[in-house]
């Protein structure tokens, strides 16, 4: 019964998220909107690469950074999506307190609200990869993709995204309105530490262990291996595919556990200080 109630909250939150995400315009404009942002983001890297290499995009480094950047969109979008719910519901629609009263589980509600972001980002990732293959010599052949491995890695990566989204949502619960940009800032740090657009080995030595403790490092590496048959970081070359999957599983679950506890802690602070329905805009 409790599970069914939670699933219902998840489904309703997903529906609500989709309405908020998409119903402000007509479908074709929404599709264009959903594509321009990620393609622009990818093109920034492409131009950076071009400007230094003089137009070469055939190297492994380019393929690795391009794929890494494409999949990292999930991290930014899901983290933002889940944490923004708190800010938007609380300060804009003023419904956050009612969601607390009505939803059987705030965790499922927040996760459900991110489903629309997941769908839109999935479209964006597909478009960016397609664009890379068609125009930028990205060595991606559908026949060579290890689909089973990709599915497993992707599922665990999304779990990690949800966990980090929950962490950010916890921070939002006690933050003022100017916290709306925190998820983006935090995603930027992960972008650096997880070797998304360069091999982990390029990071200064003290930062490398931090990168190795974050699930996204393994996620991005696993995605590269699934799609292109090889990773990008020499320091992870000795870790086989199964081990990548196992580390990803364990680190994602650990992050999720930490995130749930962290959110509960932040929620307790918010309830103690009367912040659940605060309006702090300035």
């Amino acid at each position: 019964m409790a599970v069914r109630m939670r699933l219902r909250a998840f489904r309703l939150a997903a529906w609500l998220g989709w309405q908020m995400e998409s119903n402000w315009t007509d479908p074709w404009l929404f599709a264009v909107y959903s594509i321009i942002k990620p393609v622009s983001s990818a093109l920034i890297l492409v131009v950076m690469y071009y400007v230094v290499t003089g137009g070469q995009t055939q190297g492994d480094l380019f393929a690795g950074l391009y794929v890494g950047n494409a999949f990292f969109m999930y991290v930014g979008q899901l983290m933002f999506g889940m944490s923004w719910v708190v800010m938007e519901d609380r300060e804009f629609f003023r419904t956050f307190k009612y969601m607390y009263l009505a939803a059987p589980s705030i965790y499922w509600y927040l996760t459900g609200r991110a489903v629309a972001k997941f769908l839109v980002t999935s479209l964006a990732v597909a478009v960016v990869l397609g664009f890379g293959t068609a125009f930028l010599d990205l060595p991606l052949a559908l026949g060579a993709v290890r689909w089973g491995y990709l599915a497993a890695v992707l599922a665990l990566g999304i779990l990690a995204c949800v966990a980090f989204g929950l962490l950010m949502a916890g921070i939002m619960v006690i933050s003022a309105r100017h916290g709306q940009g925190y998820a983006e800032s935090f995603a930027g740090v992960l972008y650096l530490l997880c070797g998304v657009v360069f091999p982990l080995d390029v990071l200064p030595a003290p930062l490398q262990p931090v990168g190795r403790a974050i699930p996204f490092t393994y996620w991005i590496e696993g995605v590269r291996r699934a799609l292109m048959g090889r990773g990008m970081s020499p320091s992870l070359a000795g870790v086989d595919d199964g081990a990548i999957l196992a580390i990803l599983l364990l680190s994602s679950l650990a992050t999720l556990a930490v995130a749930v506890l962290f959110y509960a802690w932040m929620e307790r602070i918010a309830r103690d200080r009367g912040l659940i329905d605060q309006v702090t805009e300035h």
Binding site: A176, V279, T280, E281, H282
Partner: peptide, 8 residues
């Protein structure tokens, strides 16, 4: 109405 900025 809720007028004013909560933080002030």
């Amino acid at each position: 109405e809720t007028v004013g900025y909560g933080i002030l």
